[in-house]
């Protein structure tokens, strides 16, 4: 078991290296660099820069160096905890993303809890009451959940809340807490706001997970060990929860591998629509404003979260299923 985790952890730096190259490529991809867009910005506002100033600026950010040097300067800085400065916000990137990252992870965790705690019971009920009214009902719900893009759900809910209740459901804090330091009151306020975006984000995942759970459980319910448990004289609910549900959840755990990354990165759009202070809207703004260092760091953070998601799912799976533990 520990060996298995260590093996997985050893892969982490390699993946991070590949992803950092990838993120760097993204930073470099747009034609020109930040200085070019800065000059354009200045020109638009009527002022200008002379060539010497431009060169000085380039030198300051190391933009005159060869690609490979720039890459290592970037990565080296990050390894020392220096993520660089956002040229758009004129603030250190670390400072910009610190709280937003926390909120992103919180939102993801909340979404995860909601979707799992909805999906598993729905899957169990649909499978054990196959072809009943409730099964059909959940099937319709699942199809709708998968077919409705999260941002549509967000838009529709926002519209309904605004036009029928006159409330705006954007943001994660009430106005008085937006810039307040952390306190219990602020945390409570956050919880009050967090559940709605989490619920919106959870719908899609709930629908997918419930379908997987239903299908897995239907498979398991037909296995001989279920009949054997019945032949031992176990009551139906007890045996379903002890055996087939346990076995049906295992493949579900392996979906965490893609579900967690999807949660974090999927929240970008909903966060933008609902104007949440997570890293998603920051990514969008940095991309539209060509603030590429910030964009690169955020993309790298998303990659990191994705790897963590896969790692968590692998470890959980090994913990739950002795057969996988053995192989590893």
């Amino acid at each position: 078991m520990t060996q298995y985790i260590i093996k997985r952890l050893l892969l982490l730096p390699l993946l991070l290296f590949i992803f950092s190259v990838f993120a760097f490529f993204i930073i470099q991809a747009p034609p020109g660099d930040f200085v070019t867009s800065y000059i354009a910005e200045l020109a638009a506002s009527g002022s200008s820069m002379d060539q010497a100033q431009v060169e000085a600026l380039r030198e300051q950010y190391g933009l005159d160096q060869p690609m490979i040097v720039q890459y290592f300067r970037w990565v080296g800085g990050m390894l020392r905890g220096n993520f660089g400065v956002s040229l758009d916000w004129k603030r250190p990137i670390m400072e910009l993303i610190k709280e937003r990252l926390l909120l992103t992870v919180l939102l993801g965790a909340m979404t995860f809890i909601i979707s799992w705690s909805l999906a598993i019971p729905i899957g169990i009920i649909s499978a054990t009451k196959k072809y009943s009214f409730i099964d059909y009902f959940f099937t319709v719900f699942n199809y709708m959940g998968v077919a409705t893009p999260t941002f549509m759900t967000a838009l529709i809910l926002m519209w309904l809340a605004y036009s029928y209740f006159g409330v705006s459901v954007t943001g994660l804090f009430s106005p008085e807490y937006v810039d307040a330091p952390w306190s219990l009151a602020r945390a409570m306020d956050l919880l009050k706001h967090l559940w709605l975006p989490a619920l919106i984000l959870a719908l899609d995942g709930t629908a997918r997970l419930a379908r997987v759970m239903r299908a897995n459980l239907l498979d398991e319910l037909n296995k001989p060990y279920v009949e054997m448990a019945r032949a031992k004289g176990m009551s139906e609910w007890r045996l379903v929860l002890k055996y087939p549900v346990h076995l049906a959840i295992n493949p579900l755990v392996s979906t965490i591998g893609w579900y967690l990354p999807m949660l974090f990165s999927g929240s970008v759009i909903v966060a933008t629509v609902l104007n949440l202070p997570t890293i998603g809207p920051l990514l969008l703004r940095s991309l539209t404003n060509q603030d590429m260092f910030l964009a690169g760091v955020i993309v790298l953070i998303y990659c990191f979260l994705a790897i963590i998601g896969t790692l968590i799912s692998d470890v959980l799976l090994a913990w739950l299923d002795p057969r996988i533990r053995m192989e590893a």
């Binding site: 990838f22 990514l283 993309v299 998303y302 990659c303 979260l305």
Partner: peptide
């Protein structure tokens, strides 16, 4: 597959 698709799509 371990890349977060949405941010990557956005960046590209």
């Amino acid at each position: 597959q371990s890349l977060p698709a949405i941010p990557i799509w956005m960046a590209l």
